[in-house]
Design a binder for these strands. Sequence first.
DNA 1: TTGGGTCAAGGAGTC
DNA 2: GACTCCTTGACCCAA
Length: 289
Amino acid sequence: MIRLGYPTQNLTLPAGTNRSLRLANLHDKNKVRGLVQENIAGLIRILPWNAERGIGLFRMGQAMIPFASHPGFPYDWEEQHGDELRRAGELARSLDVRLSMHPGQYIQPGSLKPEVVERSLAELRYVARLFDLIGSPDSVLVLHMGGAYEDKAATATRFIETMRPETNVLRYLALENDERVWTVSEIVETASSLGIPAIADAFHHSLNPGGLALREALDLALATWKVRQQRPKLHLSSQDPEKQPGAHAYSVYPEDWGTLVEALAGRDADVMVEAKGKEYALIPLGVEL
DNA sequence: TTGGGTCAAGGAGTC
DNA sequence: GACTCCTTGACCCAA
């Protein structure tokens, strides 16, 4: 069985989980508190909408708690929003919707710069703490491995050494291949060293296959989820024909979906669809909105 | 009220 | 060297 999901916002409702603010306004406690409450309220609106349509995955916006890992964050967000987050988590579990987050390109645990590593770890700890409060052990913290710094082997070693002590982050962390640097086989190797699973992104894989067919890449990535006894997660998207290679299209093309389904060959997976059209991109995959 | 420039942060690749 | 792309558009000022 394949379950589907989409990221951060629902265009139909509409509702979102990614409202943020400029750093210059972070001092305004009431503003920040209001935005966080709106993001959590958005999540609470989206979850039942998804469940009614059989959409079993949802990715929360990284700015659910905007600037949560920034030293200038103006109050104790765990204490102030803990109850709301626990309630949202209870709702997600009662509806059987799996949650995830995907910190962005600035998160570089393998960086050569200590300050970049520290900021990256602070952000990863924020996500893990948020998942703790939500309380669903199958939540997934999706991360790219970042830069290669002209020496992949040394960077992978550095990445592993930096992450190994982060036991609470590792409870949720999964590594994803990207479209130009790290291939599926490389992230599977690093993930295995850390005892965590790997996410194969079918679109990135098509741009950066590392000599593997999609079927072979899935064989590697799906097997890594045994360490957590969880359903494997994958990503799917299509190329925007108007833009550079790697840019996500508004929707998913049926041929890309067909290629993934064929490569899965009947195996179970949770597939996150990354498209500008959000939930509308699930329509060509058979979801009725 | 709206249009458009700008926004914490990194790195790789293209032009 | 400037621009684009990646997670995700949203914020916010000027008119």
